[in-house]
């Protein structure tokens, strides 16, 4: 440690976001900027769900990957071993047949004003109603909004997940993403 002086402003980083209140995160989400989808492609981000129940479900931690499919950006989730769910523990991927377990595929595009999922016009939408997911996979009901927290930092993102039930949208959890490694797809 050093005594190097830093400004008195609070640091809005992964730890601060992952342990912040929902009210605070909503403010950050509204103020966030839309990430460049092309800059996400080719990378995986370590993710942390803020909702406590996700700990019991073994999905507190995860990774999200992004890739280019022709001209379109799509993405996927990577399963993380549930045992080490603390923020200070490493994100250890569940491995099957020598590679990480990928699931929960989604399409990535800027929020469209004319569509029902238009709560945050400054966000990207991760739409899980993708043909890449099995027909009866519950993840098909997920809709995530995603913003860049700081316009100067493309590596830190804040997301808000909803479940789509018909025209209703139920809030599930906020999640934090931080660029971790190149895509393993």
């Amino acid at each position: 440690m050093t005594t190097k002086k830093k400004p008195n402003a609070p640091k809005l980083d992964y730890l601060a976001l992952a342990t912040a209140s929902n009210d605070f995160l909503d403010e950050v989400l509204v103020k966030g900027v839309m990430p460049d989808p092309k800059a996400l492609a080719g990378w995986e981000f370590r993710g942390f769900n803020t909702l406590d129940v996700t700990l019991l479900a073994g999905i507190r931690k995860f990774k999200k990957g992004f890739y280019l499919d022709g001209d379109v950006v799509r993405g996927y989730n990577v399963k993380i071993k549930p045992g080490k769910a603390g923020l200070m523990e490493p994100w250890v991927e569940t491995v099957k047949n020598g590679s990480s377990v990928k699931h929960g595929w989604y399409d990535v595009y800027p929020v469209r004003a004319e569509e029902i999922d238009n709560l945050y016009p400054n966000a990207l939408l991760l739409n899980y109603a993708s043909d890449k997911n099995p027909k009866f996979d519950p993840s098909r009901f997920l809709r995530d909004y995603l913003v860049q927290v700081d316009p100067e930092n493309p590596d830190l993102l804040l997301g808000k997940a909803y479940v789509a039930l018909g025209r209703k949208r139920l809030f599930v959890s906020y999640f934090i993403l931080e660029r971790a490694n190149p895509s393993t797809l």
Binding site: M1, T3, K4, K11, D13, L15, T19, L87, M88
Partner: peptide, 25 residues
Amino acid sequence: LKATGYQFIYPDARHGLRDTVQWYR
């Protein structure tokens, strides 16, 4: 204290507490 120009290294205890726990570990 701030009026004297002091700038906190850890204005937010969460960062300091995390680093301290890491040190204990």
